[in-house]
């Protein structure tokens, strides 16, 4: 069972709002760097850059911060995550906006922040996510949220983007009731 909670248009509207909020909160675009967490967070970062450029006429530096090597579940996961893109522009003294698709336990963000710290000392780190589905396991909260989406732990939230999946949508999949086979 799956349910579309955001469609193409809704995603665009949410991103536009987040772009405005970023500019507003930072009183412009000065000293800003956008870092996406691959794979989809990176594409969202590129989209945000475009929206900000449309609004402010400034093209911000965008990078990718791969949290894989900093994860705390490498010794637990059965499947080994493959390494992704790591491209970090100078961050010393910058205000870094990290971008991810879904905020869930907060562990990926923790790992990404640790990774980022190995590259320099940003002035501040802010977090932008398309969807916040709750169930945090760490004291982490997003500064910019495309959509708050209360979910149960049994549900899955998937973001599909045209760049990677050929379609723009956010879907919630409902886990089958206990006892039934998948």
């Amino acid at each position: 069972m799956k349910k579309i909670v955001l469609d193409d248009k809704a995603i665009e509207r949410a991103l536009a709002r987040v772009a405005h909020e970023i500019i507003e909160r930072n009183k412009g675009t000065e000293n800003l760097v956008i870092l996406g967490i691959p794979t989809r967070g990176y594409h969202l970062a590129l989209r945000l850059r475009k929206k900000i450029e449309e609004i402010e006429g400034v093209c911000l530096p965008v990078g990718a911060v791969d949290a894989t090597l900093y994860r705390d579940d490498l010794g637990i996961k059965k499947d080994q995550p493959s390494l992704k893109r790591m491209e970090i522009p100078p961050v010393d003294g910058k205000k870094v906006v990290m971008v991810d698709d879904v905020l869930f336990t907060g562990r990926t963000i923790r790992a990404a922040m640790n990774a980022l710290m190995d590259f320099g000392r940003p002035l501040a780190i802010q977090l932008a996510v398309l969807v916040d589905r709750g169930h945090r396991e760490l004291p982490i909260k997003a500064d910019y949220i495309g959509k708050n989406l209360p979910t149960s732990r049994k549900e899955g939230v998937k973001v599909h983007l045209s760049e990677t999946d050929g379609v723009n949508e956010v879907v919630v999949t409902v886990a089958p009731a206990e006892g039934t086979k998948q």
């Binding site: 090597l69 900093y70 490498l74 493959s82 390494l83 790591m86 590259f119």
Partner: peptide, 23 residues
């Protein structure tokens, strides 16, 4: 191919100022 592509990704770590990951 897996080992080679993983190795290609790891080259970046050795080019950082802090050449260490906690993995």
């Amino acid at each position: 191919e897996l080992i080679l592509s993983t190795a290609a990704s790891f080259k970046e770590v050795s080019e950082r100022e802090i050449k260490k990951v906690p993995t």
